[in-house]
Design a protein around this nucleic acid. Structure first.
Lengths: 125, 125
DNA sequence: CCGGTTGGTTACGATTTGGTACCTACTGGA
DNA sequence: TCCAGTAGGTACCAAATCGTAACCAACCGG
């Protein structure tokens, strides 16, 4: 079995993790930064997003956005002007994750603070 | 910049996503299954876990468990009996994610149901 | 003394991944 | 006239990833 395909072990004893799909989505490289930027700064154009994420290649950004679009988390608005103008925004479905993501970020910040404190303590020894 | 290292762009304009650290942890291959099994069936021995996750190689399981241990999410209890007995369990810190994971699973199940309904609708057309 | 058990480790190798460089087509500015 | 910017697409290539298979240590039962 390939590693990233969902096991789909129908009758195998193992239990299937229901949130696997969502985590698989959020987990792709750069994805958290993209979603975080869209959540923080609102709808943005391709170049703007690329500049803001900082370090991502156009190829990667395109691929990630396409995947997110396919998952129904991102909407792509294409205006065929010259030069073209493409705006990306989070869908209603993506915003269903707001509460979860906020809680997650809260925990993350607490852990970061704790770890920083622990490191300071150890450094002082 | 390597893709999976956190950007750490100190002064670059991009905002750092605080939950990146946690997602980076939960996102590794197989990790969700491992955590899900530990959450569902409680502390388990290595072989038990391996059997239950189904399809994972010993190498991968070891590596994932070591990483989770390093992140403080999993505790490893080693009893040097012959044959050795190693039990893995979730730490207190891991259980701080319970609420978030439950909410996430809730959303995941809703989406799954919605998508299934949509597919049924489309198939009936 | 041979095989079985547990919980790994190590080497190798194929596949996947993701970055770089280069291409489009069009326009506006110097 | 030449260059820059916009939103990508494509080819190529190096590097990381992950599975497979082999091995190991220690002891116990037969």
């Amino acid at each position: 079995m390939s590693p990233h395909t969902s096991p789909e072990h129908g009758k195998e004893g193992g239990a299937v993790c229901p949130m696997d799909y969502i985590l698989r989505m959020l987990m792709g490289p750069w994805t958290t930064y993209i979603v975080y930027n869209l959540r923080t700064f609102g709808p943005q154009r391709f170049g703007e997003l690329k500049r803001r994420v900082g370090g991502i290649s156009a190829k990667m950004l395109t691929e990630r956005l396409r995947t997110l679009e396919g998952a129904g988390l991102v909407r792509r608005d294409y205006e065929p002007t010259i030069p073209p103008k493409v705006t990306y925004s989070l869908t209603h479905r993506a915003h269903e994750l707001d509460e979860v993501l906020d809680k997650l970020a809260q925990v993350a910040r607490r852990w970061q603070a704790e770890d920083a404190a622990a490191r300071t303590l150890k450094a002082a020894e």
